[in-house]
Computed example of a mutant assay.
Amino acid sequence: MIINKILNVDDYYYDVFMSISESLTGFSVNELQSTGLADIYYKHILGQIEAATFIEFLNTSKTILENSYSQDQLNNAINAEIIADPGMQDMANNIITMWYLGTWEGAYVNDLSYKEGLVWNIMHAHPPGAKQPGFKSWGVKPVNSNS
């Protein structure tokens, strides 16, 4: 039964999920895994939508990833086969939002998802109230400070 297979994180669907997440977010698989949320996000999606819908998205992603030999080909294929299809685009948008903000359809996946959202890396900031920058950090100029 396919549902038992997809819930096994060692299956190739998980690898496809991580690879397409890398392409959609611009962060490497290692960076995504370092959030500690990869398995949780994969399983969360399965709990939120029908497995068949997710599998369709992953099969389309798998085909794109296997048939792309350059970054340009990959970007063009994602635009043509995922972004151009409203259902696939919704799934891609939800996955991007989940990685960046830690939310799925407006609700945080868990407490860690807020802390580990990719948005904080992009902003060179920390999540207020969750990860403090450290003692005496106020005396250090921000990374992109013009002053």
Results as ranks from 00 to 15, higher is better:
Phe57Glu: 06
Ile82Asn: 02
Pro133Ala: 08
Phe135Lys: 03
Leu58Pro: 15
Gly139Asp: 01
Pro127Leu: 12
Ala51Glu: 12
Pro142Asp: 00
Asn110Leu: 00
Asp111Glu: 11
Thr53Ala: 14
Ala84Gln: 02
Gly139Phe: 04
Asp11Ile: 02
Ala92Tyr: 07
Leu74Asp: 04
Asn8Arg: 02
Gln89Gly: 10
Ala77Arg: 00
Ile96Leu: 11
Ser61Thr: 06
Tyr114Lys: 03
Ile83Tyr: 02
Thr25Pro: 15
Asn146Ala: 11
Gly87Glu: 02
Ser68Lys: 13
Ser113Asp: 01
Glu116Asn: 05
Met1His: 10
Ser61Cys: 11
Gly87Leu: 03
Val109Arg: 05
Gln132Met: 10
Trp104Thr: 00
Tyr41Gly: 06
Phe54Arg: 06
His44Trp: 01
His124Val: 02
Met123Phe: 07
Lys131Trp: 11
Leu32Gln: 15
Lys62Tyr: 14
Asn144Asp: 03
Asn59Ile: 10
Met18Glu: 07
Ala38Ile: 09
Lys141Arg: 01
Ser21Phe: 14
Trp104Leu: 12
Asp15Ala: 08
Val109Tyr: 03
Phe17Ile: 11
Met91Arg: 10
Tyr42Gly: 02
Pro142Val: 03
Ala52Tyr: 11
Gly47Ile: 09
Ser28Cys: 09
Lys115Tyr: 03
Pro128Thr: 06
Glu116Val: 04
Asn67Glu: 08
Gln48Ile: 07
Tyr13Ser: 00
Gly102Met: 00
Leu58His: 12
Tyr108Gln: 02
Ile64Lys: 11
Gln73Asp: 12
Pro127Met: 11
Asp90Gln: 05
Pro128Arg: 08
Asp111Gln: 07
Glu66Pro: 00
Gly106Asn: 09
Gly47Met: 14
Tyr42Glu: 00
Asp10His: 01
Thr97Asp: 07
Asp11Pro: 02
Thr63Met: 13
Ser147Arg: 06
Leu74Asn: 03
Asn79Cys: 13
Leu32Thr: 15
Ser147Pro: 08
Ile95Thr: 00
Leu65Asn: 11
Ser68Thr: 15
Pro86Cys: 09
Lys115His: 06
Asn30Arg: 09
His44Met: 03
Met1Glu: 10
Gly106Ala: 10
Leu112Cys: 06
Lys43Ile: 03
Val109Phe: 02
Glu22Cys: 14
Asp10Gly: 01
Leu24Pro: 15
Ile55Pro: 10
Thr60Gly: 15
His44Gln: 06
Met98Phe: 04
Phe27Cys: 14
Pro142Gln: 01
Leu74Glu: 05
Ala38Pro: 12
Leu46Gly: 00
Lys43Tyr: 01
Leu7Met: 09
Ile45Phe: 15
Ser23Ile: 07
Ile82Phe: 05
Asn94Pro: 04
Val119Gly: 07
Pro127Gly: 14
Leu58Trp: 08
Ile6Cys: 02
His44Asp: 04
Ser61Trp: 11
Ser145Ile: 07
Glu50Asp: 13
Ser113Ala: 02
